[in-house]
């Protein structure tokens, strides 16, 4: 079931859409939501890949203007980091945010469901 393409496509769309509409901070929120509740269909690592995929898609959209290389060179030059490295850092940033939010939610919710004392409050 997890191998179905839809399982990847849905989070990718969600990450891309919310990033585009609201901004970067939606990445951990979407990941947390997807990892909730315990036993959700998406693993943290899957969500990390999906978030990175979403940002790559958005970067490709930015690249459609034909000047992404120039942007990368200028931005990289300004902060003295090679442009392509900065681009990779951007994508990894999304992946880390998604993985950490999902893994955190996963860990907490599983502990809550596994521990009856925590459940009863």
């Amino acid at each position: 079931m997890r191998a179905r393409p839809l399982l990847f496509v849905l989070p990718v769309i969600a990450f891309a859409l919310t990033t585009w509409l609201f901004g970067w901070w939606t990445v951990p929120l979407v990941a947390a939501q997807a990892a909730w509740p315990a036993g959700a269909r998406w693993k943290a690592s899957t969500l990390a890949w999906c978030a990175m995929g979403a940002w790559v898609l958005l970067l490709l959209w930015d690249a459609a203007g034909g000047r992404l290389g120039a942007v990368s060179q200028m931005v990289g030059g300004a902060i003295q980091v090679p442009g392509p490295v900065l681009m990779v850092v951007s994508v990894l940033f999304a992946g880390l945010l998604a993985w950490s939010a999902a893994a955190f939610v996963e860990g907490v919710t599983r502990r809550v469901t596994a521990d009856p004392s925590l459940r009863s409050g």
């Binding site: 970067w24 958005l58 959209w61 930015d62 992404l68 990368s72 900065l86 850092v89 951007s90």
Partner: peptide
């Protein structure tokens, strides 16, 4: 760094 609205 975010695509769509950031520097990219």
């Amino acid at each position: 760094l975010e695509p769509a609205r950031g520097v990219w």
